[in-house]
């Protein structure tokens, strides 16, 4: 059971959240006409073995997207911030 400290709601079980995706990929600006930046954003991943910044959606809570730091090898949990407060 991953436990996530939602900045709004406090420490909650993963079952209240849905997993989103890698939070380090930056969405190209609207208006980006080149294809490759979009391919990289939508499809390609660093997929690190170790610390990972990732989006989770507190879908059964405050419905905020958060950026969680989590270790993919050990499942250790690091910092959790509101996505809207994380600089991309």
């Amino acid at each position: 059971m991953i436990r996530i400290k939602c900045p709004i709601c406090g420490l909650r079980n993963e079952t209240e959240f849905t997993y989103g995706a890698d939070a380090t990929v930056k969405r190209p600006e609207m208006g980006e006409q080149e294809q490759q930046p979009w391919v990289d954003y939508v499809f390609n991943r660093d997929n690190p073995r170790g610390w990972h910044k990732e989006y989770w959606h507190h879908v059964q809570g405050c419905r905020q997207w958060v950026v969680l730091e989590r270790n993919t090898l050990t499942h250790e949990i690091g910092e959790c911030k509101l996505a809207r407060e994380v600089e991309q």
Binding site: M1, N13, E14, Y19, R49, E54, R70, L73, H75
Partner: peptide
């Protein structure tokens, strides 16, 4: 559902 290399899963 979440990225993992840990070869173990959770109760949910």
């Amino acid at each position: 559902m979440y990225n993992s290399y840990a070869q173990r899963g959770g109760l949910p």
